[in-house]
Design a protein around this nucleic acid. Sequence first.
DNA 1: CCGCATCATGCAGGGATTTGCACGAATATG
DNA 2: CATATTCGTGCAAATCCCTGCATGATGCGG
Lengths: 253, 253
Amino acid sequence: MLTGQRKTLILDILRRDGQVIAKRIADDFGLSEDTIRRDLREMAAERLLKRVHGGALPLAPELPDFSTRRGVSPDVKRQLGAFAAKMVKPGRTVFLDGGTTTAEIARHLPRNFAFTVVTHSPTIAGELEHHPTADVILIGGKLYKHSMVATGAAAMAAISLVRPDIFFLGVTAIHPVHGLSTGDFEEAAIKRHIAQCSAETYVTVTQEKLDAASPCHILPVTAVSGMIVPSDITEASLAPYRSAQVPIFTVSD
Amino acid sequence: MLTGQRKTLILDILRRDGQVIAKRIADDFGLSEDTIRRDLREMAAERLLKRVHGGALPLAPELPDFSTRRGVSPDVKRQLGAFAAKMVKPGRTVFLDGGTTTAEIARHLPRNFAFTVVTHSPTIAGELEHHPTADVILIGGKLYKHSMVATGAAAMAAISLVRPDIFFLGVTAIHPVHGLSTGDFEEAAIKRHIAQCSAETYVTVTQEKLDAASPCHILPVTAVSGMIVPSDITEASLAPYRSAQVPIFTVSD
DNA sequence: CCGCATCATGCAGGGATTTGCACGAATATG
DNA sequence: CATATTCGTGCAAATCCCTGCATGATGCGG
């Protein structure tokens, strides 16, 4: 890994997490702590961050949403996001749905190789502002503010023009019989269309969404390439999905 | 292998991977590291990439990027934004350009009647998430991260489909002779197109942009319906624009 | 075909940078 | 105050870089 690249990565992590821990970075990068410490020292000299015992902090206490953001997104979603993000491979095109879990995927996308992200959510696009290597394609349309996604005919037409390798779908409910569902009719139609344009569709599921149903049907569970679930979900509650032949990816702790 | 060909390949790899490692390239091409290093050195001299120990990285944008720019002269921008927002009338359609000043307009938009906002910036769309009465139309396209706006053919086509009443244009420089300009060619083309689709175009100007010129021309000053300027700009510096018959709106304190 | 200039390439060696390790000092934590 | 990290510095090894030069290919004019 190149030194300059490492420094930008550190800055990215700093922006994303609001802090950097020398030991953990050293682990992640497979380098000695000394090297990281040296980097941090140099970057502190360049006024790029604030050196503290154990790591570093952003120079300006940044946007006030840093603390809120970190609190709002629970560990489970972070883990799901990190896991899903690892499924992205160099050169691929990935479609990111709107939603908080998908935002976590965006935050954890690999930063050491290039790929393309398509999204109809301005929020997701905003998350990727500082991503060093991701090409972002924004799908336009009428903004549905509740979910912050573009909808309508224009969005449908624009989506038809892309062929993503992976679609990370966000839903409000998943049920072995009633399938995947969400609260808005128009949004459901968009999600269905994206799934149909994509080679693979993965849905991230948390406990409270399991075995529930929302008003608007999107797809049957058999239509997805896999469910990504946290490790604390019991095997019993997954059984109906397993018997429906849905591949299940359990996020390891 | 031809030298020029090799350099193109290196640039391709740089774009794809976000990095180039001299040793690996030398291996891949079956050439000595010296040759690659020489290439990298020359390309760095041509400003095609950034030479670092071990290889090369894509050229970092020298200008501070969008979120860094947020800090500059916030009060003035807020006043400009509030003033411009008052120009929006019920039922009208307004196009908001990307940029920090335009973000201020978005924050000050009236909340007691309905209207439509069109924008090609996910950041601006995000500002309007909690706006109670604004319909938001998002223009899609390839995201130009430096300014956080959608660009390219898809954006152009989508823009052609709307006829905004007012376009609030953001620029990096305005000059009586050289007109309005910005730093990116593609972005300039988009701005020009939006202005041509719009009934009226207003440009917000702060002191440091006045009588300056950036690389890419957008429009002549006579093409705008008005300039919105802070009150502390001297009459003398506005004179050339007045004599060009450009209506000038001075923001009262 | 010959001589010459030009250029790309590889090699050698001296210099610069980066990295990891060791050890004593500084700092946090209870 | 005691202990465990964490930090900073000096140092050595590895890696990488640059300069200068030799070699061979290519192109051009005679």
